[in-house]
Amino acid sequence: MSALFSTAAVFGIVATLALAPIAPPADLAVAEASLAAATARDEVQRVDIAGDATQPAASRESYTASTGPETLISGGTNLDWAKLVLVEGGWPLTEANVTFMMRWMRQENGADNWWNRNNPLNNGQGSGGGSGLGSYPTLVEAAYYAAENLKSGRYPAVDAALTRGDSADATAQAIWASPWASSHYGYGTHWSSRPYEVIEAPASAWGR
């Protein structure tokens, strides 16, 4: 009988522990009480957002890779030289500008020998040949002097058209009307708009 009573007493204690809720820690109870009091006093910090508010668009900067002279020199083609002149002159490397340069170079020396005398545009400035029959030590110097001549103030319409960079035909008309060539390229009759060919010059023409 005594054993049965002891077992019942132990069972009663265990049941009491299982059913009784565990009291929260003192600091948690204090925090909850403080939050309840603050809520009652309307002291809880909140952010009100207007119903018509819109999320600002994220700013995404635009970056473009620039083509450096060394990259073009290592390329070694007439296309690279055309771009090198544009880089030297600070003109944009647009498709229209590159197309104009390639067509112009072809009119001056022909695609198969575009590096003739290292003077693709038969430029007189800095080449020792006032009529455009001079030569340069390398195609690198030729690109520099071609850009310098076009920026000299003697060809303002060409410079302006290259600065816009939006029309190969408009830039061609500017060079026809300029004093660059005494023939004025027949004002277009001696000018071809057929697709250009990309041809590599000998490494020695680039000074390599």
Rank of each mutant, 00 (worst) to 15 (best):
G128M: 10
G128E: 05
S131R: 13
S131N: 15
G132Y: 05
G132R: 07
L133I: 12
L133Q: 15
S135T: 13
S135C: 09
P137Q: 05
P137T: 08
T138Q: 05
T138E: 08
L139A: 06
V140A: 05
E141Y: 11
E141H: 12
A143W: 01
Y144G: 11
A146T: 14
A147V: 08
A147G: 05
A147R: 04
E148I: 04
E148T: 14
E148W: 10
N149Q: 15
N149M: 15
L150G: 06
L150D: 04
S152W: 11
R154K: 14
R154A: 15
R154N: 15
Y155A: 00
Y155F: 10
P156I: 07
P156L: 03
P156W: 00
D159C: 08
A160K: 10
L162K: 01
R164V: 14
R164A: 15
G165R: 03
G165M: 03
G165K: 01
G165V: 06
D166V: 12
D166E: 12
S167D: 11
A168F: 10
A168D: 14
D169P: 01
T171V: 11
A172D: 02
A172T: 12
A172K: 04
A172F: 07
Q173L: 13
A174M: 03
A174Y: 05
W176N: 00
A177N: 13
A177W: 03
S178A: 09
S178G: 06
P179H: 11
P179W: 12
P179N: 08
W180E: 06
W180N: 07
W180I: 05
A181Q: 09
S182E: 07
S182R: 12
S182Q: 12
S183H: 01
S183Y: 00
H184N: 13
H184D: 09
Y187V: 10
G188R: 08
T189S: 15
T189F: 00
T189R: 08
H190G: 14
W191D: 04
W191H: 01
S192M: 02
S192G: 11
S193M: 12
S193F: 14
S193G: 14
R194L: 11
Y196F: 13
E197G: 10
E197F: 10
V198M: 02
I199D: 06
I199A: 08
I199K: 15
E200T: 15
A201C: 10
A201K: 10
P202V: 05
P202I: 07
P202N: 08
